[in-house]
């Protein structure tokens, strides 16, 4: 049965597609995986998929596009039967589609950069997550730091503020501020296939942690 990972964040440019494409690529190394792109017509994940299939074609990786929440639910039903993992790349809006992703997903990841703007938009998201739990108590959403520069005072301060203010569990893994992530996206690759050892290590750690969390969830 497919495990569903939803990447949600209402702030644009927060790293949703970076997370979605990397997780989809790494999961597909071993298991059939479907990437569902919900940010149409921008379609960053779809563009990445087209590049990837030209560069490193895989029989294990599928792409679906959803244009609204009903389309998303139908695509999730359709592909859940043939995939081990579904990775949903959410839209930068707190609308029907993001709400549907919260309910459909076994695990929602909320990419969060260490900036005030992203933290503010995440506060809105938390309110909706609380609402989602009244429909489905087991909704599981976790923050993941991205473009995190742990050596800066600002990043440390924001991290402490988030831990104090936002009541949302955080993944241990985090992605640093690395060119390798944007380079990988532009080439249809995952950061694990790039030469930067730090990026490889971070994305490998993230995918492993997500898999462990999913494996612990009994359906």
């Amino acid at each position: 049965m497919a495990k569903i990972v939803g990447i949600i964040q209402t702030k644009g440019g927060a790293g949703r597609s970076t997370f979605a494409t990397n997780l989809a690529a790494i999961f597909s190394f071993r298991d059939p995986t479907t990437l569902i792109d919900c940010d149409m017509p921008q379609g960053t994940s779809s563009s990445w998929y087209a590049l990837r299939q030209a560069e490193v074609p895989s029989q294990n990786l599928f792409l679906a596009q959803a244009r609204n929440h009903i389309d998303l639910i139908q695509k999730a039903k359709e592909f859940a039967g043939q995939s081990r993992y579904l990775v949903i790349d959410g839209p930068p809006r707190l609308a029907e589609m993001t709400r549907a992703i919260m309910i459909l997903s076994d695990l929602c990841l909320v990419p969060l950069g260490a900036s005030a703007a992203e933290i503010w938009s995440t506060s809105d998201l938390l309110q909706t997550l609380e609402e989602a739990r009244s429909y489905k108590p087991e909704v599981d959403a976790r923050l993941v730091w991205t473009r995190f520069r742990g050596y800066t005072r600002e990043a440390q301060d924001l991290k402490e503020a988030v831990e104090r203010e936002l009541k949302l569990e955080q993944l241990h893994s985090r992605l640093g501020y690395r060119v390798a992530f944007s380079e990988a996206l532009a080439r249809g690759l995952s950061a694990e296939e790039c030469s930067d050892p730090n990026a490889r290590s971070e994305i490998h750690g993230l995918a492993g942690e997500v898999k462990r969390i999913l494996a612990e969830k009994k359906r």
Binding site: I73, A95, R99, I103, E131, Y135
Partner: peptide, 9 residues
């Protein structure tokens, strides 16, 4: 999923 999605933002 459908109920929650359409319940409003």
């Amino acid at each position: 999923a459908l109920q929650f999605a359409t319940a409003g933002t």
